[in-house]
Simulated assay, not measured.
Amino acid sequence: MDLAKRLIDEAAQAGAHAAKFQSYKAGKIASRNSPAYWDTSKEPTESQYKLFQKYDGFGEAEYKELARHCDAAGVDFLSTPFDLDAVDFLDPLMPVFKIASADITNVPLIRKCAGTGKPLIMSTGASTLPEIEFAVKTATEAGAESISLLHCVLNYPTPVEHSQLGMIRVLKRVFPECAIGYSDHVVPDKTISSLEAALLLGASILEKHFTHDKTLPGNDHYHAMDRTDLVNFNAKASLYKQMVSKEGKSLSYEAAARLHARRSIVAAREITTGEVITEDMLIAKRPAHGISPVFWDDVIGQKATVDIGEDDLLQWNMISPTSATVRS
């Protein structure tokens, strides 16, 4: 419990918005014949059942205590339920339910979570688009009104070349009614490039394993982020949010460039009063203080109403239509 609270505090201090745990009992999540699917050189336990047995000591009272600690630390408490009983005791503690990738086909669990009326976040690791569509349909029919989907690759760890972050765009296109995010298992570099890329691709929810010591044994520590990683990532995320603050563009920041770096129609030689202007008399030069070159064809064929010196910027009061131009 002390370590769990420490992890909450470190995550909160580093800028996390939520601290998410997992609520399971070995006997309800895996049969005794359940092979490992992780890197056994990092976590040597050969059975899922035996691994879960090591870490399933928390019950309802402990999760309530963690929820209180999250509240005091200023972050949301979340815990992924892995059985129906967990949904019941977690419901009053959380603002949203998270469904793990491995349970995207678990119809009774999806229905139970959706039936609470709370928003759902579903990870999509190891899933096909039809399976994801089925899960969304199941949740919607069971009462879920707000569903978010997290792209995920269910490898621990996920090699960089297997991260397939382009799937974020696919999910945004196929499920426009859902918020799209990313659950990451790539071994972090200095600023967690995988999360940076996901953010720039439009992920609005980011999830990653968190530890206080990456060298600890187990299935998660070696590919988790720590407090330093999260601080570094949040600094980059803040920078990116400033760069990509909104769609559209304000030209107010470029007013000087529009005025001084764009071009005007300029006399390439002296033009005397009454001369009809031809193309060889003109050149486009900076600054944009005169007639814009977008009116190039309109200026050609006009008559000079004053003497125009070489390199003078043409203004509309220097020219007037010829009789031929008026007739046309």
Rank of each mutant, 00 (worst) to 15 (best):
N219C: 05
G309Y: 05
R6C: 13
F52D: 03
V276R: 08
K172W: 01
K249E: 04
S250D: 10
L109I: 10
D280G: 13
T40H: 07
S194M: 01
A179R: 15
D71H: 12
I147W: 02
H221C: 09
L120A: 09
D103R: 04
I265G: 03
D307C: 12
S323V: 13
I168G: 00
I192W: 01
T191Y: 11
P44C: 13
K236N: 00
I132P: 09
L165M: 14
A144Q: 07
R227A: 15
Y55C: 14
R111M: 15
S101N: 11
T124E: 01
G117H: 08
F77N: 01
E43Y: 02
A4M: 13
V153K: 02
P321A: 07
L7F: 11
I205Y: 12
T273H: 04
E60G: 07
H151V: 10
I291Q: 02
G290F: 09
E145N: 14
T272C: 08
R262P: 03
T40M: 12
P157F: 00
L66C: 06
T138F: 08
L51S: 05
T158A: 07
Q164G: 08
N155R: 11
D56W: 04
R269W: 05
R258G: 07
L171W: 08
T158C: 13
L7S: 12
G117R: 10
A102V: 15
E254F: 10
D311R: 12
A135M: 10
F97W: 01
K214Q: 10
Y24S: 02
